[in-house]
C-alpha cells in the first residue's frame, strides 16, 4: 500500500518534471518565456520568505534587501572580478547569508511591527546606498552582466535560461519541504507559536531565529543571482524598492502564510496580475494596495 502510494507520487513528480522541461517548446514567444523565468525566481523568493515569516513567524521586510544583495554581489563578482556564473552564484549566496545573519540580530529583542521596521531600515538603506554609489552603477544600474556558460554553450535567451532557473526552483521547493519536516521546522513552528514556551522546552531562540534568517538569505541570494544573470543582464536599484517587498509579502498572504504550495500559487498569481496590469500602471497602487 505504502509502496504503491510512494510509486504514484514519484510518477506525479516525473510527469511534472517532463511537462516543465517541455515548456519552452510550447510557449510561443520570448516575452512569455521571460515572464515564466521571473515567476520561477519569484517562487524561490516567496518560499524563502515563507521560511522566516511563515515557519518561524518573524516579520521581516529585509527580504528584498537580501535579494538586492544577491543580485548586486553576483553582478559585481562576474563583471569586476571575472567570475563565471557558476562561481558568482555561490559567492553571491555566501555574501547574502552573512548579511542575512546580521539582519536576523534585531529579532533577538524585537517582535512584530518593530522587527518589521528594523528590517525595513536595512533594505531601504541598502537600496539608497546602491543608488548613490557609482561603483555599484548608481541610478544607471549595472548592465551587460554575462549570461551563464556551460563549456561553449551560452544560455543567452529566456528559452535557454529557463533550463538554468527551473532546476534551482525545484530544488528550492524540495528543500523547503525537507526543512518543514525536520527538527529545524519543528523548532521554527514552536518559535512562531510561543517564544516563552519555546525557550521553556529547551529551544535556543537566538540560534534558531538566526538559522531561519540565514536559510531565507540563501533563497534570496540564489534568486538575486538568477535575476542578475537573466537576459538582458541588467539590474537597477528600482527593482528592489519597498513596493517589490510588499509584492512578496502579498504572494505569501494570498497563498496562505506558512503553506509552501500556497506560496507557489501566490507567486504565480501575483506575478501574472502584476504583468497584466502593467499597462494600467497608474492603477497598480490600488490593485496591490501599496503606496
Amino acid at each position: 500500500m505504502s509502496f504503491s502510494n510512494k510509486y504514484r507520487i514519484n510518477l506525479y513528480w516525473a510527469a511534472i518534471i517532463i511537462i516543465l522541461s517541455l515548456l519552452p517548446f510550447i510557449v510561443p514567444n520570448l516575452y512569455q518565456m521571460h515572464l515564466i523565468n521571473i515567476i520561477c525566481i519569484n517562487i524561490i523568493m516567496a518560499i524563502g520568505l515563507n521560511i522566516v515569516k511563515g515557519f518561524a513567524g518573524q516579520v521581516t521586510v529585509a527580504h528584498i534587501g537580501l535579494y538586492a544583495m544577491g543580485a548586486y554581489s553576483s553582478a559585481i563578482l562576474s563583471i569586476n572580478y571575472g567570475f563565471s556564473f557558476w562561481m558568482a552564484l555561490p559567492g553571491a549566496v555566501i555574501i547574502t547569508v552573512i548579511a542575512g545573519a546580521i539582519v536576523g540580530i534585531p529579532s533577538f529583542r524585537l517582535q512584530g511591527p518593530y522587527l518589521a521596521l528594523a528590517t525595513l531600515a536595512f533594505s531601504e538603506s541598502l537600496r539608497i546606498y546602491i543608488s548613490v554609489n557609482t561603483d555599484l552603477g548608481a541610478t544607471i544600474g549595472i548592465s551587460n552582466i554575462p549570461p551563464p556558460v556551460i563549456f561553449d554553450f551560452t544560455f543567452n535567451d529566456a528559452f535557454l535560461y529557463y533550463y538554468i532557473v527551473i532546476p534551482f526552483t525545484l530544488i528550492s521547493i524540495y528543500f523547503s519541504f525537507k526543512i518543514l519536516k525536520s527538527k529545524l521546522g519543528r523548532a521554527f513552528k514552536a518559535i512562531r507559536e510561543d517564544q516563552l514556551s519555546s525557550s521553556a522546552v529547551g529551544i535556543n531562540l537566538r540560534f534558531y531565529k538566526t538559522i531561519a534568517f540565514v536559510i531565507s538569505a540563501v533563497y534570496a541570494g540564489l534568486a538575486g543571482s538568477l535575476y542578475a544573470h537573466l537576459d538582458p543582464g541588467f539590474i537597477h536599484p528600482n527593482n528592489f524598492t519597498l513596493q517589490e517587498s510588499v509584492l512578496y509579502i502579498l504572494m505569501l498572504v494570498i497563498g496562505g502564510i506558512g503553506h509552501i504550495w500556497g506560496c507557489i500559487v501566490g507567486a504565480v498569481f501575483i506575478t501574472l496580475i502584476w504583468d497584466l496590469t502593467r499597462e494600467y500602471y497608474q492603477y497598480q497602487l490600488i490593485i496591490f494596495g501599496y503606496d
Binding site: K183, R186, A187, K189, A190, E193, D194, L196, S197, S198, A200, V201, G202, I203
Partner: peptide
C-alpha cells in the same frame, strides 16, 4: 509556565513532542 502557554496551532501530540525537543 503560568498562564497555560502552549503552542495553540499545533496538535496536542506535536505539543508534547516539542517538550522532548532536547
Amino acid at each position: 509556565t503560568q498562564g497555560k502557554e502552549v503552542f495553540p496551532d499545533l496538535s496536542v501530540e506535536q505539543n508534547l513532542k516539542l517538550g522532548a525537543f532536547i
